[in-house]
């Protein structure tokens, strides 16, 4: 493996982290919650795709579309049922609830599909030759799809009405409400959007790693969250940057140092960045008014 291959690998996994990190960062920006259940949404999305394709024989495009819709709805339902009642309480209660939801999804899926890993067929077979180098089709698709989605998302947040509402609510909920923004709808939409992105990340993940299990979401989610914090939580470009940094760092560590230490390196980078710049690479510093 050349260093270039390692970097391409890193970008591939990094763009998956980035897609998941976007969900974390949007939700955090708007309700100040580390949504621990977000990793489980990816897991559910993966199982949905796997089930519809290999058990129901659905075509790939239908499975992916179904997974996106299913996860978006799931995300919104979780918000309505579990998070909304706690919006005005201490944030730690909300955090524990999110952990509870995460446990629940993990164990519910384990109950239905058993703990044994399921194999995934390659959705994007083949490879692409470009300038003397061979790229796997899944890497190409992953990177291209992620980049398109990231650009789309930043356009959505910057230019559309709902995007402006999202920014307003994350800035100040009460003022946004006074301005006539429907806060509940906006939060709901944010959860739906984040979960939909997680579903696409799930499909891309499966196409790269061919294997799914009920606990797959926790470490993936954790690293994506690390990516979001690293880049500066609440910042969309930060989440993308963080995702790529984590992905490439991980891939290079695995390739040149030790794959056992990859996780430690990822967290080490996070710690160093937070100590130097507590609000993340692209984050805005928070100051308390005295």
């Amino acid at each position: 493996m050349t260093i270039l291959n390692q970097i391409i690998n890193g970008i591939q996994i990094g763009s998956i982290y980035a897609l998941v990190a976007l969900g974390y960062t949007m939700v955090y920006g708007i309700v100040k919650l580390i949504n621990f259940a977000h990793g489980e949404i990816i897991m559910v999305g993966s199982y949905f795709t796997w089930y519809t394709m290999s058990r129901l024989g659905a075509p790939a495009w239908a499975a992916v579309l179904g997974a996106v819709v299913f996860c978006a709805v799931l995300g919104m339902v979780i918000e309505k049922v579990a998070y909304k009642p706690l919006r005005n309480y201490a944030r730690i209660s909300l955090l524990i609830t999110a952990i509870g939801v995460s446990f629940f999804l993990q164990n519910a899926v384990q109950l239905i599909f058993k703990a044994t890993p399921r194999m995934f067929q390659n959705i994007f077979p083949g490879s692409l030759k470009l300038g003397g180098m061979v790229f796997s089709m899944s890497a190409v698709v992953t990177i291209v799809v992620s980049v398109i989605l990231m650009i789309g998302l930043s356009l959505l947040v910057k230019n559309t009405k709902i995007g402006k509402a999202m920014r307003a609510v994350s800035e100040d909920k009460d003022t946004a409400q006074l301005m006539g923004i429907n806060v509940d709808h906006t939060i709901s939409f944010t959860f739906g959007l984040g979960s939909g992105l997680a579903a696409i990340a799930a499909v891309l993940y499966c196409s790269s790693f061919y294997q799914i299990e009920p606990t797959m979401g926790s470490m993936l989610g954790l690293k994506a969250f690390v990516a979001a914090v690293l880049g500066g939580i609440g910042s969309i470009s930060g989440a993308v940057l963080g995702g790529f940094v984590i992905g490439i760092a991980e891939s290079l560590t695995k390739g040149y140092i030790s794959s056992a230490l990859a996780d430690a390196i990822v967290f080490g980078i996070l710690i160093v960045v937070l100590i130097i710049k507590p609000s993340g690479i692209l984050g805005r510093p928070e100051n308390e008014k005295v």
Binding site: A82, P85, L86, Y89, A90, S93, I96, T97, I99, G100, V101, F103, F104, Q106, N107, A108, Q110, L111
Partner: peptide
Amino acid sequence: MVIYSLLLIIVMIFKPS
């Protein structure tokens, strides 16, 4: 574990403190 996690969510919703 499903029951455990549901209990956790329910307690938090009804007794956040």
